[in-house]
Design a protein around this nucleic acid. Structure first.
Lengths: 203, 203
DNA sequence: ACATTTGTTAACCAATTGGTTGAACTAATT
DNA sequence: AATTAGTTCAACCAATTGGTTAACAAATGT
C-alpha cells in the first residue's frame, strides 16, 4: 500500500478547497489560502490536483453531487404533488441550513461559466423534470390542482426554497432583522412555503 | 470653464465599469479590461476614481439606486395588496429584463461583503418594509387575505420575481429549454407569478 | 540491505495586475 | 505669447499569484 498519509492529504485538500471556493468563489479564492487551511505546502495542491481549475472542478462536482439527489426527491418520487411539495420544502430547507453556501456557490459559478453545467448533464442522476411535468398535467386533468405549467411550478418551488439563502444579506437588511430572527424565519419556511404553494395550486 | 471632455470621459468610464463589473464581479474584473471597453488609458481610471475599490463602489451605488425605487413601488404605494402584487410583478420583471445582470450583481457582491449594504442604508429612498407589513396585518384583519407574516410574503414576492434571473443557467438546464423559450417563460411570469401569489393569499 | 516509487517542502519563476509617474497635450485665462 | 490648470498617455513599478523545480523524506518492493 501507499503512504497512509496519501488519502488523508487528498481529502484534506478537498475539504479546505471546498471551504475557500464556496465562500470566495473561483476568482476570489487563493491557492495559498487553501494550502494554509489544509495546513500543507502549496505545491501539494498541484501534486494532487494539477491546477486551480481542476481543483475547482473537483469541488464543484462534489457540491453538485450533493445537490442533485435533493432535487430528484421532488422530481422522481411517486407520491402526489401535494405530498412531494410538503416533503421537499421541509427536507430541502433542512439540507441548505446544513450547507448554507452551497446553492449560492453553484448559482454564482454557473453564471460565471454557464456551459460548465453541460459537463454535469452527462452524469447519471442529473435531475430531469420530465416525470414531474407529466404528473402536473395528470393532476390537473384529474381536477386535483389548478392549471399551471410544470416548468412554472418547478421554478416557483425552487425560488421559494432557495432564494432566501442566496439573497440573505439583501433580504435581511430589507426586512431589518438580526441573524437569530432571520434563522427563525427561514425555519418557519419549512412549512410556510409548502402551505403557500399548496394554497395556490390546490383546487 | 474646464475641458468639456471631462464629464464625457467620467461617465464613459462608469458605463464601461458597469458592464465589466456586473458580468464578472469585483474579483473577476480587470482594470485593463474596463479601460479597453472605454477606449481609454488605464491611468484614466485612477485619475477619475482613484482605485478599483472606489470605482466598484460607484458602480454598485449606481446599480442599487436603480433597484431601490422598484422595490419602493410595492412597499410604499397606497393601493391594495392585490393591486400592488399585480403591478409589481409586471413592472419588476420588465425592469429586470432590461437590466438582466443587475439583481445577480447586487446579490453576489453583498454576499462577498455583507456589511457593504450598511453604507446604502443611510441614503434616503432606501426601501423600508414597515408600511407594507402594517398593510398586511390590516388586510388580514379585514378578511381580505389569509393570515401570513409580512416578512414571509415579502420574501415570497421577491423570490418568485428575482430567482429565475439569478439562477438562469441552472434552471434553464434543469427544465431543458433554449434561450428563446426561457425568455418566453419569464415573460409569462409577469402575470403567472402575480396569479400564483394572489391565489395563495386571497380569501 | 538497497533501489524505486510516492509524498512533502522551500525556494524560485514568469505572468498578471493594481497603481504611479513624468512628460506631453489641450484649452481656457491673463 | 506666456501662463495655468486640467486631461491623456506610455512606460514603469512593486506586489501578488498560479505554477514549477530540485532536493529530501518516507514507504514499498525485491
Amino acid at each position: 500500500m501507499k503512504n497512509k498519509k496519501n488519502e488523508n492529504t487528498e481529502s484534506l485538500i478537498l475539504e479546505a478547497a471546498k471551504s475557500i471556493f464556496q465562500t470566495k468563489g473561483m476568482n476570489g479564492a487563493r491557492m495559498q489560502e487553501i494550502a494554509n487551511k489544509a495546513s500543507i505546502n502549496k505545491a501539494m495542491l498541484h501534486y494532487y490536483y494539477r491546477s486551480k481549475q481542476l481543483l475547482f472542478e473537483a469541488v464543484f462536482k462534489n457540491a453538485f453531487s450533493l445537490l442533485a439527489p435533493q432535487l430528484n426527491t421532488i422530481l422522481n418520487d411517486d407520491s402526489s404533488i401535494e405530498e412531494k411539495v410538503r416533503n421537499f420544502c421541509s427536507n430541502y430547507i433542512s439540507f441548505i441550513i446544513k450547507h448554507p453556501y452551497l446553492p449560492n456557490f453553484i448559482i454564482q459559478e454557473l453564471n460565471r461559466n454557464p456551459n460548465f453545467i453541460l459537463k454535469m448533464k452527462d452524469n447519471i442522476g442529473f435531475p430531469n423534470t420530465e416525470k414531474f411535468k407529466k404528473q402536473v398535467v395528470l393532476e390537473i386533468e384529474k381536477g386535483i390542482i389548478k392549471p399551471i405549467k410544470g416548468e412554472q411550478l418547478f421554478i416557483n418551488i425552487m425560488a421559494l426554497n432557495v432564494f432566501p439563502f442566496v439573497a440573505k444579506p439583501l433580504i435581511q437588511t430589507l426586512i431589518d432583522v438580526e441573524d437569530e430572527e432571520f434563522e427563525q424565519i427561514v425555519e418557519e419556511r419549512k412549512t410556510e412555503v409548502a402551505d403557500f404553494i399548496i394554497n395556490s395550486i390546490k383546487k
